[in-house]
Amino acid sequence: MLPEVETWLRDRSFSASDWSLPRLHELKGSTTVSVVLPARDESATVGEIVRVIRRELAGLVDQVVVIDSRSTDDTAAVAARAGAEVHAQDEILPSLKPLDGKGEALWKSLAVTHGDLIVFIDADLRDFRSSFVSGLLGPLLADPRVHYVKGHYDRPLGNAPTGGGRVTELVARPLLNLHWPLLSGFMQPLAGEYAGRRSVLERVPFVTGYGVELGLLVDLLELSGLDALAQVDLGSRAHSHQSTEALGGMAAQIMLAAWSRLDRQGKALMLEEPSVRLTQFHRSASGHRVVDRDVSIAERPPMITITR
């Protein structure tokens, strides 16, 4: 791991329990907060998430917005009954040709929210806790130098407490370690729970598909620098899991998002030597243990060229 990433991990890694609600209310002052839930066919979970936010974070959160991304169920009605401000994705900025994907919903939310700070929360979370929101707000309210905060958590899969996040471990983490090693300290780079300052989020592009999270990390690193980014331990996250086929599509979009940034940064032709270190994390009783692996490869020449 790079020395500057080790320093960042020490200075910019937090836990949701670091800030009590009274302390956050004190820090908030005149700052306004919007929470955004992009949702497509999430009627089973979106209502409870909205109710918890409105009930437990009243006074801290000023606006709860659900962007309905062409749901075929009653997601919009359920969210509205729970107290959310609901907008149909395609009705926002109607002069623009509609595009598909989660990133489109997130980008369009910037046009219908008014908060100085914007918190993005996936709408498929089960057993949702308000600390998912308050934890992300902590670093932003406490330190004006922090521009963007990612959540991280254990992701259960079946009977395995940390079996989720397959695309993270197989695609996103290797990409970041290879090409943007300064971002290797993020434990959940594809987490759907994150928050940022409007003044910064409005200055970067949003990938319209599932590459939005990786794209934002890379672009915000370029715009603001590593010290402006932070992460918060939110505990454990329970949600529905995608099929392997769906994960393949997500992985492809993430790789495309990475490629577009490599191209823009002049790295597409591999003129720069990529990092060969892969940073991973193991949770222990005392916290997270960093595990560095050498993932360098070698090539054998064609066998026909070998003298035997």
Rank of each mutant, 00 (worst) to 15 (best):
G135A: 09
G215D: 06
T113Y: 13
E273L: 00
L96Q: 03
S30R: 15
L176D: 10
L216D: 03
V149K: 04
M1D: 13
V35C: 10
R173A: 12
L220Q: 10
I49F: 00
V200F: 04
T32Q: 09
E169T: 05
R261Y: 03
I254V: 14
L57N: 04
K267S: 06
T45I: 05
Q89M: 03
G248W: 09
P189I: 07
H87S: 04
V86L: 12
A285V: 15
S109W: 05
G248Y: 05
N177A: 15
I304V: 08
E299M: 12
E26H: 13
R126P: 13
R203S: 13
L182T: 10
D154I: 04
L60D: 04
V36T: 14
F128Q: 15
L9F: 07
A77Q: 09
S199C: 10
R155Q: 10
G287V: 07
T113F: 13
M1K: 10
G163S: 03
T31K: 11
A160S: 07
Q188T: 10
A88N: 13
R261Q: 14
R293K: 15
V290E: 02
D90Y: 10
R10Y: 12
A111W: 06
S34Q: 07
V146Y: 01
S296V: 04
P301G: 09
I306W: 09
P22G: 07
G59E: 08
I254C: 08
W107V: 00
L175A: 15
S134Q: 03
V86Q: 11
R283Q: 05
V46G: 06
I53W: 01
R129E: 12
S30Q: 15
G248Q: 12
G225F: 07
Q188L: 00
S30M: 14
L271F: 01
V61D: 13
G185R: 09
A251Q: 14
R166H: 13
Y153R: 11
V290A: 02
L157Y: 13
P98F: 03
A285M: 13
E273Q: 09
T168N: 14
V64G: 00
V232K: 00
L24E: 06
V61R: 07
L57Y: 04
G196H: 02
I118T: 15
T279I: 01
L110Q: 12
P94C: 10
L278D: 13
D41Q: 01
D294E: 14
I121G: 06
L9A: 09
L99E: 13
V232M: 02
M270F: 07
W107G: 01
L175R: 11
V52N: 02
G83L: 02
L183V: 09
A238G: 08
A172C: 14
W19S: 04
R166C: 11
F120K: 11
M1S: 15
A252P: 08
K108R: 15
A16R: 04
M303V: 05
P181E: 10
L110G: 12
D227E: 12
G138H: 01
V218W: 02
T307K: 01
L2F: 09
D122C: 03
P274M: 02
L117P: 15
D73F: 06
A246Y: 14
L234F: 01
V276P: 00
